[in-house]
């Protein structure tokens, strides 16, 4: 039984193929570039190629992410919060708290042992607490994005940014530069500021170990360290975590498919 999870995000589109709800047989990623449907189809082709399957072998397709309704060839769509929680618990069954620092919003979720969302909270007011903040800082400080984290890790006295506006925070950073604050301290300050904002969300839903970080920034070691330092607990950062939402969608797709196959109703009836 092959189910597919497709996470149609604003920046990139991610997909996974799951066999019998247990084993990931393929993962793929493509930039979205404003064309979610095309990116989704590309990812499907990549997945099929990697798993050596025909796209038709996929029995159930569940979409998630901002463009989850835009993709026509789906059986079901679920919210990316629901999906990333399921995905995080699939990857690490001990996880009870998931924090997702995405490009435009951050979310914290407390989850059950099956990955069901018990409570969640996302930043709504202002985007200062989201990953895009890091991109903008990189641009402003003229540091390539992939060098942000290694440089930040050299920090000894990080300078935390207090402004709640992502744009005005840049002014604060520039002031720090003008005041000769060392670059690593400014960079680490950026990650710590993000971590602190995430921590407010996390405390709001209640923190229980294990805590997992998902979303794009999970690849940044500085982000993981900053979060560990702020939370005062180890953070699970699975290498597959950027695909957590796609994985969760595939997992939910699998359980839905199982339920449907117990009934005589043909699959087409479940299409939305």
């Amino acid at each position: 039984m092959i189910t597919c999870g497709l996470d149609l995000g604003a920046g990139s589109t991610k997909g996974v193929l799951l066999e019998d709800g247990r084993r990931i047989v393929a993962t793929a990623l493509a930039p979205t570039r404003g064309h979610a449907v095309d990116a989704g189809r590309t990812v499907l082709e990549l997945l099929a190629e990697e798993a050596n399957l025909f796209p038709g072998d996929i029995e159930y397709l569940c979409t998630t992410g901002g463009a989850r309704y835009a993709f026509p060839d789906r059986h079901l769509q679920v919210s990316d919060i629901t999906a990333s929680a399921r995905g995080a618990v699939f990857l690490r069954p001990g996880v009870r708290h998931v924090v997702d620092i995405g490009s435009q919003s951050s979310r914290a979720m407390s989850v059950s042992e099956t990955g069901r969302v018990l409570r969640f909270k996302m930043n709504e007011k202002c985007a200062a607490g989201a990953g895009r903040f890091v991109d903008r800082c990189a641009k402003y400080l003229q540091v390539p994005l992939d060098e942000m984290a290694p440089k930040a890790l050299a920090s000894t006295k990080p300078k935390i940014i207090s402004s709640v506006c992502a744009v005005l925070a840049e002014t604060e950073i520039i002031n720090n530069v003008a005041e000769d604050v060392p670059l690593p301290d400014i960079l680490m300050g950026v990650f710590l500021s993000l971590a602190q904002r995430a921590y407010v969300l996390m405390r709001n839903v209640g923190i229980q170990p294990d805590v997992a970080l998902v979303g794009g920034l999970v690849r940044s070691e500085a982000m993981v360290r900053a979060l560990e330092r702020t939370v005062g607990a180890p953070i699970v950062a699975d290498p597959q975590a950027p695909h957590a939402a796609a994985i969760g969608a595939a997992v939910l797709g699998h359980s839905r498919l199982q339920k449907l196959s117990q009934r005589p109703t043909p699959l087409a009836a479940a299409e939305v």
Binding site: G34, C126, R132, C165
Partner: peptide, 15 residues
């Protein structure tokens, strides 16, 4: 009102 959110609003209009 948020510059960063407005960006996503614009993106959604583009989409």
């Amino acid at each position: 009102t948020c510059t960063v959110f407005a960006e996503s609003e614009v993106s959604s209009y583009v989409a």
